[in-house]
């Protein structure tokens, strides 16, 4: 699935990263807890979150996440968007709630990555 398709499926606003809309994403992760996100690394991933602070972008930077989607109509500050832009991360905003947004992407063919990582 491309980031453009993610945007269409979620009826999302593009906040930064127009150049990357045709990039392919392979998996997604939805969480408001960044440490939970940091526990499960997947390649070329999308992060859906209702948390709206600079640490979301930092987390995405550390994990090479391609696209961050702010759910539930959360609007990140200009500073946060700028931070994402500088590191080449596409940022989308959708009014859908977390559960719905994840479900819609799943239905569209994106999943959480093959199975799950055993933590222990």
């Amino acid at each position: 699935m491309t980031i453009r398709e993610v945007q269409t499926i979620l009826d999302a606003r593009l906040l930064t990263g127009e150049d990357s809309l045709d990039k392919e994403v392979l998996s997604a992760c939805g969480s408001d807890m960044m440490s939970d996100v940091l526990a499960f690394v997947k390649d070329q991933a999308v992060l859906l979150t209702g948390l709206c602070n600079a640490q979301v972008i930092r987390t995405a930077q550390m994990m090479d996440i391609l696209c961050v989607v702010f759910v539930r109509g959360k609007n990140p500050t200009e500073e946060i968007i700028q931070m994402a832009a500088e590191s080449g991360i596409t940022v989308l905003g959708t009014d859908h709630r977390m559960f719905s947004a994840c479900g819609m992407l799943w239905e569209g063919g994106l999943n959480g990555g093959a199975g799950y990582d055993k933590f222990h």
Partner: peptide, 12 residues
């Protein structure tokens, strides 16, 4: 509330 304190820091 800031997205940390999930008890995953040291385990990660």
């Amino acid at each position: 509330d800031l997205g940390f304190g999930a008890g995953m820091g040291l385990p990660n």
